[in-house]
């Protein structure tokens, strides 16, 4: 029985535990016990959705990446705001982005980043995880979007997941 008392997803368990402490009214004995139970039960239940352990090798690069993304969200939000208020019609492009990342977690991180940075929404990933379909709100050409995303987001993620 006790061999099931492990944490197959230590990071997920840690996040669940600390989130529960934040949600409850101050840290008490009850909240710690409940947090431990949740940190154990939820990874067990969702076990099937996590095909492999995440290979998160270079965690210390993460804060820099998050800062860059937050800054881009701020700057580019203004661009989208100007575009929306501009009476001319935008020129949308569907971009087939060739992925160089291989790890599924890295791909979903890249897709979320693309969706959050204004001007682009990731719409779909091909079944073989090789191509990402991106909808750009206003762009001159496909190549322009591909180059910008590769330089700014995919390179740092490739460094992180190497």
């Amino acid at each position: 029985m006790f061999d099931r008392l492990n944490f197959p997803q230590p990071w997920l368990s840690l996040v669940l535990f600390s989130t529960w402490q934040f949600l409850s009214d101050g840290i008490s004995g009850a909240s710690v016990v409940m947090g431990l139970v949740l940190a154990w039960v939820i990874p067990q239940i969702t076990h099937g959705f996590w095909p492999e352990r995440p290979a998160f090798v270079k965690v210390w690069r993460m804060p820099m990446f998050v800062l860059v993304v937050l800054w881009d969200i701020l700057v580019a939000s203004f661009e989208v705001a100007i575009l929306i208020l501009n009476p001319r019609q935008p020129k949308p492009v569907f971009v087939n982005y060739p992925l160089q990342l291989e790890h599924p977690l890295a791909i979903s991180l890249l897709a979320s980043t693309i969706s959050l940075t204004p001007g682009t929404v990731s719409a779909d990933v091909s079944d073989d995880n090789k191509t990402l379909l991106i909808h750009a709100l206003d762009a001159e050409s496909e190549q322009e979007v591909i180059d910008a995303i590769h330089k700014r987001y995919e390179k740092p993620l490739m460094e992180m997941f190497r």
């Binding site: 580019a76 939000s77 989208v80 705001a81 949308p92 959050l116 204004p118 719409a123 909808h135």
Partner: peptide, 12 residues
């Protein structure tokens, strides 16, 4: 169209 509309809510 729908795909351009998707940009407003998700970010702004």
């Amino acid at each position: 169209d729908f795909f351009t509309r998707l940009h407003g809510p998700t970010k702004a």
